[in-house]
Each structure stands twice: as C-alpha cells, then as structure tokens.
Design a protein around this nucleic acid. Structure first.
Lengths: 100, 100
DNA sequence: ACTACATATCGATAAATACCGATATTTGCA
DNA sequence: TGCAAATATCGGTATTTATCGATATGTAGT
C-alpha cells in the first residue's frame, strides 16, 4: 500500500453514509432483508437494498458504490441484473496495517 | 469509536500531505533533523520542521496539525514557543480496529 | 519594553466534492 | 419484441475543502 492508494481509500471513508455502508456490509444478514433470487450473502448485498437503507438518491449511492469498488474497498459481483457488493477484507486489513 | 469520529479521522487522512505527516511522525529521527533546544523526539516533532518538509505554507500546515490534533490523530505538547506533534498511537489503533 | 521567532487565526478565492433529477444501459421476462 | 426493473452515467448547482497571504498571539532573550 502506498500513500496515494491510502488517500483514495480515506476519501471514500470520509463520509458518514459511506462509512456506514462499510459497517452494514460487515454483517449483511443483520442489516438487510434476504435477497429475492439468491439465498445467501456470499457476494454481499445488492445495490438496491443499500440504496434503500441509505435514504439517499439511487444515483448518489450508485456513485458511492462504484467509487468504493474502484479504490478497492468493495468487490462487486453481477448476478443477472443485480450488482452485489461486499467488503474487500484483504484490502481493509492492508489499509489498517498501513496506518499503524 | 463511533461513525462520526471515524469519519473525521478519515477526512484528516484524505490528503496526501497529511497522510505523509502521519508516516513521517512514525519515525521522527529518520525524517527530521534533531531539535535545537531539546535532544529527543519524545513529544514528537516541532511544527516548523513539519512545515519545511511539507513544502506548503506555514498557515496551511498549522491548520493541518491543529485539525489532526482536534480529531485525535496527533497529540500536541508545548515547549516554550515550540509546538511538538506526535502520533496518538492509541487512537490510530482504535481506528484501525474499527474498520476491521 | 522591544525585537525576533514560532505558531495560530482570519479572510479570500480556487478547486473539489456532494447530491440530485434526468437519462442511458443492461438484463429478464411476458 | 417490447416492457419493466436494476444500475450506471451525465450535467448542473450547492456546499465543503484547499490553500494562500496577511495579521494576531504568545514566548524568550536583550
């Protein structure tokens, strides 16, 4: 991890909603209803549920998720028309170690 | 550590210079010359040295340091007319754990 | 008390980010 | 094929952040 990468990650985390998304995704089954066309959270949570829980507009949350994936905090998996997002634990650990 | 606190910390870290200050202060003796009126780095590094190394204006760096102290990332100690800043390792550890 | 130095604060402007509604794209299904 | 749902992208405005120079404050030594 270098300075620039760490700064980009920090930018993603410097917003209350985005920080909460990281929290929510730590325990998807506690924070979201079950998915309709899939019976697990192995690939995370679909964008619509995150949008609904956030109380912000769809476009804003979609942008959040896209950027959080770009900087590596989240991993996105497509299942049909749904985009599932989950935490990238490896990168989060790297970032945490980088700060220490 | 709650969401708001973590967001404030992230804001401080979401800038290349500020992130580097955190790095520099991890090993003061490697990154800064010895102090004039004190022979150790126990309380960190004086603001002037950090300012000089940063290549930004004095007022900008002073603001950085003040904010980084406010959010808890740094601890400031006054010695005469000098302000020494060091990392607050306990808070950094808390933040890192919060993310995991 | 005066001067010099270290740091903090203020006020301004430029740049970046936040956030929305509208629209485009993609995919599944009738 | 055509519609509807899920998501992404675009364009605009409001807010926040970045950064500076100027100035204020605080401290030490002459």
């Amino acid at each position: 991890m270098d300075v620039k990468e760490a700064v980009e990650i920090s930018k993603c985390l410097s917003n209350q909603t985005r920080m909460q998304i990281m929290e929510w995704l730590r325990e998807p089954e506690k924070n979201f209803p079950p998915h309709i066309s899939i019976d697990h959270f192995d690939d995370g949570v679909c964008a619509t549920y995150i949008h609904e829980k956030s109380k912000l507009s769809q476009s804003t949350v979609s942008n959040y998720l896209t950027n959080m994936e770009k900087c590596g905090l989240l991993v996105m998996t497509k299942h049909g028309k749904w985009s599932y997002y989950k935490r990238n634990e490896a990168l989060i650990t790297d970032f945490a170690k980088y700060l220490l």
